[in-house]
Structures are given as structure tokens and as C-alpha cells.
Nucleic acid binder design. Structure first.
Lengths: 257, 257
DNA sequence: TATCTATTGTGTGCAACTTACACATTAAAT
DNA sequence: ATTTAATGTGTAAGTTGCACACAATAGATA
């Protein structure tokens, strides 16, 4: 199968998509040191962008988001939630995805035209365990990689705005999102959980009080110690007790102020 | 100008609207006793529904919501915010707005067909001072009236779901929404503010502690007493100090737990 | 083996806040 | 003048937030 056929198959018939409606995903991961965001680099022009896609006419919105996310990360059912819809007239400034004079652009004249229309985009936020994700670019992207939140490049259209809105949501909703359980591996140290909260809130928290608060909430199970550290006391490993965690989640969890 | 012409003018050319995109408004008011929601009753079939409308191709989403809201309430710039987008495939069950065999239905065959397509609807939440609103039905609605939240009738499509999602938002975001300043008249008693909070939270709060907490927050100006009460001490009137209020709003205001 | 180092786990005291309830105040009715 | 019913303020116990102290310990060092 040559590239041509692949492209054709991948996009399918444009008329099977809802016109003027798209989905953009802000996918956040944590590498135990800092927060990362999953980004695509488009072949044409090298623009950075959020992973996204279109919605089939016979497909629910959430299903489309879930499908797009699985295509980019290989993860099947992570935390995924619509957080805002972006519909300003000028949200897609004059940054065409295809240049009609390049070979690739000429080849996809039809899609190029289709993309010229006004689009309303639903922003979805996803929190995933980076270490179990397998980032995969789509056929028109050069790469699909994790970038530290601290160094998000310029993105096309209003994608920087979308990403920032998502991050604002995370900070505001921190007590009502499955932060730790989504972003950390199965077992982790209290230090790692604390760094995660510090990265989200963008400020230091008191180690002793953080530990006591988290333990008091009662949804962490303590496991054996991790002996691979340095010249110091070894930390316990913890894991979320899903039952207790889910019970508390609606009431708000975690280190708030 | 006969009805025909009026209808024609009001809907304009359907092709000037974005296809498949609509706006539904959950407009909340407070009559000093309970919360109310603004509803329309459709002429055809007598269905109850949320006030809503469509988006012009050259119009921002927020502008469309603002326009629709002003048309129904006469209020120009109330609190208004997008809160969720409803895009499920089956969200508009088989409840046609027009019956093609009635005179009205036959007349608007074109619009009837247009409305048959799949719609993605942006839900907007608005908080308004009921007493300064002038509810006005549109040309295809019989009435536009305030209904107590406690007795919302069955609404068409997924409008009950939309309304409930909005109410959930109000409860969750109560400390970050301009509750009092949007829903109360210029001057009000502490009792009225308390009832407002109790109506939203659906639970009683301690009168003495509520009063002290609100006063301590420092954004209420105390005015002269209201002497038109009963056989008891007269309450002070209060008003929001907008400056101090706005400063505090992002940090969260009010009676939380 | 004894000591040192860096980090983890827990304790303590004070201030602030929450919560429940008591008591004083007062406009109008009697 | 007294009563009534609601408002405005006080107070005490319990809880939580916050800052910092101290004890425990795995590995490094000698």
C-alpha cells in the first residue's frame, strides 16, 4: 500500500464527517518530575498542534474524542472529559494546514478546501500515565511527542489558548479530578505525589503537612519500602485504594489551597 | 406586516446560520423566595423548551448567546457563560418541532427540513435579576415564563439534561460565580441572601454564622434599615461593593461547605 | 564496625476557622 | 407597657492549617 492509498483510507470520505466540528485533545502526562503535554508536528510547514480530529456523522462526541486519543497514545480508557468549546470566528487565523503548491498540498486539494470552512472545536482534557502510552503520529504528522509544559512551543490556530484553558481547569478543579490516580504509576512514593501537586499548583507545599493530609484522607494503601534510594531512610511505596478514592472524589480530594 | 412576513424576517435566510450548531440558554432568576428558570412553550405541540437559537456564520458564539438572551429577557449584559456542549447522536429524540400536516408546519417546510439534521448545542448559563427582566416569547412560542426550579416540566430533546447540568455547575462553582450580585436586586436583606444560598445548596445554613461570614468577607455595604417588616427588629439592607467583590471573586466567595 | 549524611515519618504548638447555641436588641402588634 | 418574632452579636468547644522540631533509617564513608 503506498502513501496515497494510506492517506485516502485514513481520511476516508470527508462527507462522513460532521462539517465544521472538530475535537482537540489536551493530553497531560507526568514523568515523575514534571508535567508534559502530547503534541504533534505537522509535515506541511512544521506547525506544532494539539492532537485532534473530526467527528463521524454517526458518532457521539465523547466516542470521537476517545477514538482520537487511543489513536495517538494507544491508551484505551483514560480520564477524558470535555472542558470547553472554542467557537470564535477568528480562532483559526490564516495558517493553512496545506500549501497547495507543495506536492502533499496539491494532492489533498479536496481536504484543503474542506478545512477552509469555519470550525467549532470541542476541547477535551485527558490525564494519562505517560509510561504506559505509546505516542504515534498520524500520517500527516512528522512526530508525536511529549513536551514539558514549561516549554510548549507556538501552536497553530488557537491551540495555545486551548492548552492554557485546560491547564487552568486542572488547577481550578484539582480537588475534583483524579489527579494522582491518572497521572502516576500503580505504586509511587509520597515525594512523587507531592511533586505532582507542586507542578500543578506551581508552588511549594509543606512536605510534613502534605504527607499527613494525604494519609488522613484514607485512600492510600501503604506497601513495602523502596530500597533503591540513596544514603538515607527509604520511602514507603503507596497505591490508590480505588474504592475509597472514588467515594471521596466527588467531595473533593487533596491539597487544596 | 402579517405573520408570514414576520416569520420570514425573523428566521432570515437559513443559509446565514451555521448548520448543525445551536445554543441553548439556562437562564436562572431568583424571586427572593426560590430559584426560577426561564422557559418557552412552543406553539406547535405545546412542548416546553429552553430558550435557544442559532449562530450566524459571521458571529462569535458568545455574541450569539448574548443576542439570544437579550431577545428573551431584554437584559443586555448579564452574567453569561458557556458551561457544556451537548453533542450526543441521540440527543434530539424524535420530537419534531414542526408537524408538516398543521398549517404552521406546512408553511415552514424548509425550516422543518433544516432542523432535522444533527445538531451540536452549546449550553450557556445565565444568572439574572428576575425583576429587571421582561420575558418575551419568540414568534413560534406561545409563552416565555419563569418556572420554579422545583417544578420544571418535561422539556423537549435533552433539555432537562442540559438544565440539570447547569444546576450542577451552579452548585459546584457556587464560590466562583457572581451569585448574589447577579440574582439579587441592588439592595437586599441578609435573610434574602441566605435564602438564595440555601436554595442553591439545597440545605439549611446557620443564620448567625452565615451573617458573620458574609460580613467578614468585606464586600457588603450596609445601608439604612428597612422598616416595613413585622412585629420584630427591622433588618439592615445590604448592597454589593462591586470593587471589593470583583477582587475576591477569583479566590472564591461565600458560604462553601 | 562506627559514624555521618540525606531524606522520610511523625509530633507539637499556635492561629484561624467552623459549628452550635446563647443572649441582647428592636419594630410592630397587642 | 408588654409581648412577639426576627435580627445582630458573643462565646466556647472542636477542627483544621501551618510552621517547624525531632526521631528514624538506608546507604556512604572511614
Amino acid at each position: 500500500m503506498d502513501d496515497n492509498e494510506k492517506y485516502g483510507e485514513w481520511f476516508g470520505d470527508l462527507s462522513s464527517f460532521l462539517p465544521g466540528v472538530s475535537i482537540d485533545c489536551v493530553i497531560i502526562g507526568f514523568d515523575l518530575n514534571e508535567l508534559n503535554i502530547l503534541l504533534l508536528k505537522w509535515k506541511e510547514g512544521g506547525h506544532w498542534m494539539l492532537p485532534g480530529g473530526f467527528v463521524h456523522k454517526d458518532e457521539d462526541m465523547d466516542h470521537a474524542a476517545s477514538r482520537i486519543l487511543e489513536e495517538r497514545t494507544g491508551i484505551r480508557l483514560p480520564y477524558l472529559k470535555q472542558f470547553h468549546t472554542f467557537g470564535d470566528l477568528d480562532r483559526r487565523a490564516n495558517v493553512p494546514l496545506f500549501n497547495p503548491v507543495t506536492p502533499l498540498g496539491a494532492q489533498f486539494k479536496e481536504m484543503f478546501d474542506w478545512l477552509e470552512q469555519r470550525f467549532i472545536s470541542l476541547g477535551y482534557l485527558s490525564l494519562v500515565d505517560m509510561r504506559s502510552s505509546v505516542p504515534a503520529p498520524d500520517l500527516l504528522s512528522e512526530t508525536c511527542i511529549w513536551k514539558p509544559l514549561k516549554s510548549i512551543p507556538d501552536l497553530i490556530y488557537d491551540h495555545n489558548l486551548i492548552a492554557n484553558k485546560a491547564l487552568e481547569q486542572i488547577r481550578n478543579q484539582i480537588n475534583y479530578l483524579p489527579i494522582g490516580i491518572s497521572l502516576l504509576p500503580e505504586k509511587f512514593t509520597m515525594k512523587q505525589l507531592q511533586i505532582l501537586y507542586e507542578e500543578i499548583l506551581q508552588k511549594k507545599v509543606d512536605r510534613a503537612n502534605f504527607q499527613k493530609k494525604m494519609l488522613k484522607l484514607g485512600f492510600l494503601d501503604r506497601h513495602e519500602k523502596q530500597l533503591t534510594g540513596g544514603a538515607h531512610k527509604a520511602p514507603f511505596l503507596y497505591a490508590f485504594n480505588r474504592e475509597k478514592y472514588n467515594l471521596l472524589l466527588e467531595k473533593g480530594i487533596g491539597y487544596m489551597s
